[in-house]
Amino acid sequence: MRRTAAALVAVTALLLTGCSGAADDPGDVLTVYAASSLTAPFTELGGQFEAEHPGVTVRFSFAGSSDLVAQLQEGAPADVFASADQATMDKLTADDLAASAPVPFATNTLEIVVPADNPAGIRSLADLESTEVRLVVCAPEVPCGAAAQRLAERAGVTLTPVSEEQKVTDVLAKVSSGEADAGLVYVTDVRAAGDAVRGIEVPEAGSVVNVYPIAPVTTAVDPSLAQEFVDLVVSDAGQRVLSRAGFGPPDATSGDSG
């Protein structure tokens, strides 16, 4: 019995150290915390960075910006943080966790997303006002929802969503499954979602631009390596990758940041 218990403890310990140990082992590791919407372009940039820095492994944690900053505040070890909005980045700087001033590196604008066959025949923001249309947006508490709210105000339309989702992915899931007739998400999200959905450009969207800032984190193991990653993101090469994913250039801002 005692031996069984001891074996159990040993196996458990092995399993636990196994998961973290393997990744820590080889050379330098750069840990990047980035907003979910950056998954595709940042993964590509990570590959480029590893190619330019032999022996360095780039490890990503993609999640909602506010989740990530909460983890950083609780002491999670990261080298770089890229946020989907300025407000969330401000939380990091407020806690003195940014090693240098955050740099804007991309912008994102909203777009109407509809199922591929667009059953409700949506063409403009004004079409979303109809109570016949089942509209899903992000909750005002999260950046994409706040942006949608501002967009509606600027465009002078009243939105009555049937659901205010927590995440962009939840909005997309409800639109792609045909459960909702339309949603409001970022251009990049529509592009990443593939063929199940279609994006409808909104002329008014230019008035609500979301700025993505990036900054090295004070807990960085190798601050210069962290800075080099930030440099790559803002470089021309980095901008090309981001542009392909649908992001706008950082200077496309019209003075309104989310």
Binding site: V136, A139, S163, E164, E165, D170, A173
Partner: peptide
Amino acid sequence: TITFAGSLQGRTR
């Protein structure tokens, strides 16, 4: 709930 019903104050949240 969040997957199926959505999230709207007073109705599904």
